[in-house]
Design a binder for these strands. Structure first.
Lengths: 354, 354
DNA sequence: GTGAAAGCGCTAACAT
DNA sequence: ATGTTAGCGCTTTCAC
């Protein structure tokens, strides 16, 4: 690794001149000819600044800590990390990822990140839920990703869960479904409550009365399939809104066992947590993809703009097919996510007695 | 952040004494009483060493760069990163994750990692394939994760693909399947070739002749389903070994459309790339889980032992249900992975005309 | 315009 | 047994 000192020697100038030039602080301070010579030699010698030395001096590391709280060991954060990374890479920052299962583990990871002097933190749980931010983070720049702060002290980027539920259900209504079931999850989290509310509200706005027997909250396990099968037989739904892809699969399997085809005999709209649908499931299944990547991307942009005390760059959104957020307002702010849909919903009334 | 200087003042000693004590280099150099006083004040003042300053001095950062090459933007590396992170956290290291789609992007990320002074690199593609390691990494400690080095210069940790294919196929043979199909992928990669070889070898060892018409290599897209459906009708297989869960889903769907049930009418063994099976698919489907977490964990241990020029700690394997590797041999080394299986395979002869 | 010098927080060789 | 000193590579103030 060549240093500024070496460049200074090679160019016959002092280190301070080199520093000034290489950092672009040479306007009217260093003679243009000399500046150019310095830049030349730096390039020739393949100079790369030592980020650590710089950080030690400036007290800024351009490193961001990404904390993800796993409930078990399932790594859900993939897309979000990816998005955060891409954004930070564009902004000249580095991402340090860290994770832990319980508060103690997280605390210890936070200490480690602090030793390395990160400029700020991104914080995510798995699935949008209310999280309790450790006090040890309180005085740092911090943005939550797909999570909600209990105390409302910090900005967050999350999907509009209510709207997810509302849009999905409306879609099923418009497709002509009359008995629309909700297959949700039993854990009390933002995503569950929000989507369920959206489901109810959409039905009411369509002039219907939500039928509690069509609401089926299940865990991620074996008995869930039986519960869904029971719902199938007892209530004969012709449309399903599924909390996530695991739930959608229960519907898929139950339908298959009854000789029914999704998109033909019945309609399903599911939320895709794992990005599996796109690769595997039937195109007739309508899915709402959680924009994990975009959440990470935006959260990172938000965090850095906060760190650098400048307004967020609204042009810096990623060029995905996903969506454009209606950009808003002072923090704490939740970015409302318009969501993409894939595939189509059966538009005629479904029948179980086909 | 309190510094050594502050501690020195508070304890009435010099910084060097503080440094010596806090780094455990005070054996017979600092009076035990003084040492204790120093440790006390350090604790009281909540001292956390400044990792950057230390690194600047020692030329070691205890940071590792994790490079993952995505082919598109699918974040496959989740489990591996998780494993690497956990291992490194135990070893007192920090992980810097980075990714890119093409060689240029990767090169630029590598430069960034070097600026931050990482001590070594982990390198992964998505799925076990032959990768071309950039020269810019050649002089650094480097371990490949779920990838194979073309030039054989670097150690790697990968699953034993041949054995995966062999074991899966053997399982189907033992379950009484007579017409065992292989649903693979068209890309030429280690995983594909290895598993296919294993499939062939298992059939031969069972005294059978592989039937080329039962081998179906498809892409991850729509036409794949048709190809599988065609295979279903033309060859009437009673057992399937699937390259990954996307392929398994094609089989699943084709079977459902024909009113056949996996585990009852036919047998399937699939390799689980996304950790989806375990959560969603039928327990009658036998899956071989790729030990992504373990690969990351082991690779990180291997890398650090290399960096610290000490033998790898063989007790440091993660306590998962997965497997114990027969620990071996000088680098470059491939860790042979014994794999877990989940669920059961139909043990009686399957029939399409049920 | 340019260079000398101080210092960020830490380690380690060298004095005492 | 403890303190003094000299940097690691860089930024930045202050002289010239």
């Amino acid at each position: 690794m060549t240093t500024m000192k070496q460049i200074a020697q090679a160019a016959g100038v002092s280190v301070s001149s080199v520093s000034l030039v290489l950092n672009g602080h040479d306007a009217g301070r260093i003679k243009p000819a000399v500046a150019e010579r310095i830049r030349q030699t730096a390039r020739q010698m393949g100079y790369q600044p030592n980020a650590l030395a710089r950080s030690l001096r400036t007290n800024k590391t351009r490193m961001i800590g990404f904390i993800s709280v796993q409930v078990a060991t399932t790594p859900y954060a993939g897309g979000m990390i990816q998005g955060a990374q891409d954004a930070l890479s564009e902004l000249g920052y580095m991402l340090l990822t860290v994770s832990g299962d319980d508060a103690t583990a997280i605390e210890s990871e936070i200490r480690a990140l602090k030793r390395y002097g990160v400029d700020g933190f991104l914080y995510s749980a798995m699935s949008n839920r209310v999280v309790d931010i450790p006090d040890s983070l309180a005085e740092f720049p911090l943005v939550l990703v797909d999570a909600t702060d209990e105390t409302n002290r910090f900005p967050s980027v999350e999907p509009d869960e209510l709207r997810i539920g509302y849009d999905a259900t409306t879609r099923l209504v418009e497709a002509g479904c009359e008995r629309i079931a909700y297959i949700g999850c039993t854990e009390p989290m933002i995503a569950q409550t929000g989507r369920l509310s959206g489901y109810r509200q959409a039905l009411e706005d369509a002039g219907r009365t939500p039928n509690e027997r069509l609401i089926c909250d299940v865990l991620n396990n074996g008995p869930a399939l039986q519960a869904v099968e029971h719902l199938f037989d007892a209530e004969q739904p012709d449309g399903f809104f599924c909390f996530n892809d695991a739930r959608a699969w229960y519907v898929y399997e139950s339908a298959a066992r009854r000789g029914l085809t999704i998109g033909h005999d019945l309609s399903v709209v599911g939320v895709d947590n794992h990005r599996v649908f796109a690769e595997t499931l039937d195109p007739e299944l309508t899915t709402i993809e959680l924009p994990h990547y975009e959440m990470g991307y935006w959260a990172a942009n938000k965090l850095v703009s906060q760190i650098e005390k400048r307004p967020i760059n609204e042009d810096a959104w990623p060029h995905t097919t996903a969506m454009m957020p209606p950009l808003n307002t002072p923090s704490p702010v939740r970015i409302h996510c318009t969501l993409i849909e894939k595939g189509s919903v059966a538009t005629r009334r479904a029948s179980h007695s086909k």
